[in-house]
């Protein structure tokens, strides 16, 4: 077990290093630079900027410096938010995204799992049909439509909730719901599919034959097996949801991490690009590792087959 863990950790580090290197190279092939403004600056000023922010150095030197900082867990300065470190920016933004993400995940699993189970158990019923339609509909509205619609309806038309900004609990409601819709439908569908798959299995028939009540069969025998694929899905889903959503943070004006995934590239904020990439990748790799270990403990045979990744 220890060997397995050590090997997995080693591989994870290798993966992270590869990702960091690829991103570093790609990032520097983008046209423009962090200080390109609306007007062309005089040569002298461009040179001053290059000197001060060490943008003129050859790529390999900067790569070496970057790696040197990285092993000390220092992501260096931001090129956009002057005087701030990338570490500091991530530390400010992540709690916001994490709060939203955890709540959205709770909602997604809290609602998605029961819905999925009910759908599977009462296959073909009217209720099940409703779930299929509902999940399909939940997947059919882009977030950038859903979020402004919710804002308009609940904040402006009805006036029940504040429209935006990071503040009290009421401010969380709309973003969490917007964020949770897609994961909820995904979880519900996944659970429905995998429960439906195990229901006819022999060991359940056996359990039923032993005279166990259907509820007990479901909870004690069917679910542990059926939920493994769902668990495997948790890693990438959580990494995606916890690191925030660009659209939702934009629409509701929340100071989360998601915005940086888009804005850092547009701003050519080299430090922050590396920061969000590594943060996301570490989170994903770490969560996948955790999930794999969990699966392996729960059910060694399934663990390898069902591993999947993703994120969006």
């Amino acid at each position: 077990m220890f060997m397995y863990l050590a090997r997995r950790l080693g591989v994870s580090l290798l993966v992270l290093w590869l990702i960091a290197t690829i991103t570093f190279l790609l990032m520097h092939s983008l046209p423009g630079g962090p200080f390109t403004g609306e007007k062309r600056l005089p040569e002298a000023i461009l040179k001053n900027l290059e000197d001060r922010y060490r943008l003129g150095a050859p790529l390999w030197q900067r790569y070496r410096a970057f790696l040197g900082n990285l092993v000390r867990f220092d992501l260096g300065p931001s090129y956009r938010y002057l005087g701030k470190d990338v570490n500091q920016i991530l530390a400010e933004a992540f709690p916001v995204s994490a709060t939203l993400g955890v709540l959205a995940l709770a909602l997604a699993f809290g609602l998605g799992i029961p819905l999925g189970i009910q759908g599977a158990v009462r296959q073909g019923s009217f209720f099940d049909q409703l779930i299929v339609i509902f999940t399909a509909l939940g997947m059919s509205l882009p977030t950038f439509v859903l979020a402004p619609l919710l804002l308009y309806l609940f904040a402006l038309k009805l006036g029940w909730l504040p429209p935006a900004l990071w503040g009290g609990p009421a401010h969380l409601l709309l973003p969490v719901v917007s964020l949770a819709v897609l994961p909820t439908t995904l979880v519900a569908r996944l659970v429905r599919g995998s429960v439906a798959e195990v229901l006819p299995a022999e060991y359940l028939t056996l359990a039923r034959a032993k005279g166990l009540a259907e509820g007990v069969v479901l909870n004690r025998h069917a679910l542990p097996n059926a939920l493994i694929p769902v668990l495997a899905y948790l890693g990438p889903l959580a990494a995606g949801v916890l690191t925030g959503s660009f659209v939702i943070e934009r629409v509701f004006a929340l100071p989360g991490l998601g915005e940086h995934f888009v804005a850092s590239i547009y701003n050519r904020d080299y430090g922050l690009i590396m920061g969000v990439t590594l943060f996301y990748s570490t989170l994903l790799v770490g969560l996948n590792l955790l999930v794999d270990l969990l699966c392996a403990c729960l059910h060694p045979r399934f663990a390898l087959l069902h591993r999947r990744g993703g994120g969006y």
Binding site: L151, L156, P163, A164, A253, P255, E259
Partner: peptide
Amino acid sequence: TLVEEPATELALFES
């Protein structure tokens, strides 16, 4: 406030 989205700024003004 530091809101980037104009539509959101308008919503804040209107509320």
